[in-house]
């Protein structure tokens, strides 16, 4: 039986998500807002790069997100050959899904009760 489109997409996101969880630390910074900023920022830069665009790097933080994203995108390309065939729509959807999953595990559904402390 052929896998449905949703399943195929889901499997692809699994792979991307598995990579991030296994290798990256930016989604696990100290507070929910730090995590949110990183997840949104890195995913945004990565999306740009996957679509062949040059990401904005106006601020130091953006530069760093770009640096984190670049390694990730390079690794995506070498580990997941299917990604070079993904069209713009699919890339955006994959990265949206990825961002949602990371936000869920690292922020929304995280049991880490320090995430909401106002002070560091």
């Amino acid at each position: 039986m052929m896998a449905s489109n949703n399943e195929v997409l889901s499997n692809k996101v699994d792979e991307l998500y598995g990579y991030v969880q296994e290798r990256c630390l930016w989604q696990f910074y100290s507070r929910s807002w730090d995590r949110s900023e990183n997840i949104d920022g890195v995913i945004s830069k990565a999306t740009d790069m996957l679509l062949g665009k040059t990401p904005e790097t106006a601020t130091p933080t953006e530069r760093l997100h770009m640096a984190d994203a670049k390694i990730m995108v390079d690794d995506f390309r070498s580990r997941f050959p299917w990604i070079k065939d993904a069209g713009e729509e699919e890339v955006r959807e994959l990265m949206r899904e990825l961002r949602e999953r990371l936000t869920d595990i690292a922020i929304t559904s995280s049991k880490n009760h320090e995430l909401t402390h106002s002070l560091y």
Partner: peptide
Amino acid sequence: GYIANELKKRYGIPRLD
């Protein structure tokens, strides 16, 4: 991590783990 967070908050220096 604490001082890295504060350096970002007060001086805008990004933190790379």
